[in-house]
């Protein structure tokens, strides 16, 4: 008999272990080549497609980058299903963007008093929301996880605190047809909800 492993508990443990491991040292480049000059631009070495641009002064441009980042604007919200381990939680959706290659869903979950994330194990891709439009259901993209079955191309949902909004989650889907303006999200996690679709931003666009 073939079964897939249940590992919600292991997920939590291993995530914690992973974070600890991520805080240890590193064996990155030992001998970076210092060659910064007084001025320069983002360009590619030896590249036919180098992005030659006017040479700006090299200076910390963090503020321009961070101040210009778009924030999270709520586009839809719905409540968790009582039969889900999320019961009592609220799902808030911030982005549903399509490109010709994929569709990206971004959401956050505010936990309820007895909510937990067991239903959101990435190993159970079939439990992830589906995008419903035009008589079709678009399922989350999954990946073949090294002899551990197909898992959702999404990040596990951690942490989940009562009354507090958790970190942004994202999941990748097949491309919606161009011009799609709204889809219905269906999921065993929450009550179905209509969500507007926008086109993904592009660099320089």
């Amino acid at each position: 008999m073939t079964t897939r492993r249940h590992a919600a508990g292991l997920l939590t443990i291993a995530l914690g272990a992973g974070l600890l491991a991520g805080c240890t040292g590193d064996d990155g480049p030992d001998d970076p080549t210092p060659s910064a000059s007084a001025s320069g631009s983002a360009s590619a070495s030896g590249s036919p497609s180098s992005t030659a641009s006017p040479s700006p002064t090299l200076q910390d441009r963090s503020a321009e980058l961070l101040d210009g980042a778009s924030g999270l604007e709520q586009i839809a919200t719905t409540k968790a299903r009582s039969g889900s381990t999320f019961r009592g939680a609220t799902f808030t959706f911030y982005r549903l963007t399509r490109s010709d290659a994929s569709t990206l869903l971004v959401w956050r979950v505010t936990g309820g008093p007895s909510s937990n994330t067991n239903d959101a194990n990435v190993r159970f891709w079939e439990r992830y929301p589906v995008l419903v439009t035009g008589g079709k259901e678009y399922s989350v993209v999954s990946f073949d996880k090294e002899n551990d079955g197909w898992s959702a191309l999404s990040n596990p949902l951690l942490p989940l605190k009562s009354g507090a909004e958790g970190p942004p989650q994202s999941a990748l889907y097949p491309p919606l047809p161009a011009g799609t303006s709204t889809v219905t999200l269906k999921s065993p996690w929450f009550s179905s909800v209509k969500v507007p679709v926008t086109d993904a931003p592009t660099a320089g666009g």
């Binding site: 631009s41 980058l65 778009s70 161009a178 926008t198 660099a203 320089g204």
Partner: peptide, 19 residues
């Protein structure tokens, strides 16, 4: 199809590709 809006544009930072 109804026209879908485009998400907020990416910031423009001099000399820095923001993709």
């Amino acid at each position: 199809p109804a026209h879908a809006d485009t998400a907020a544009p990416l910031p423009t930072v001099e000399g820095v590709p923001v993709l």
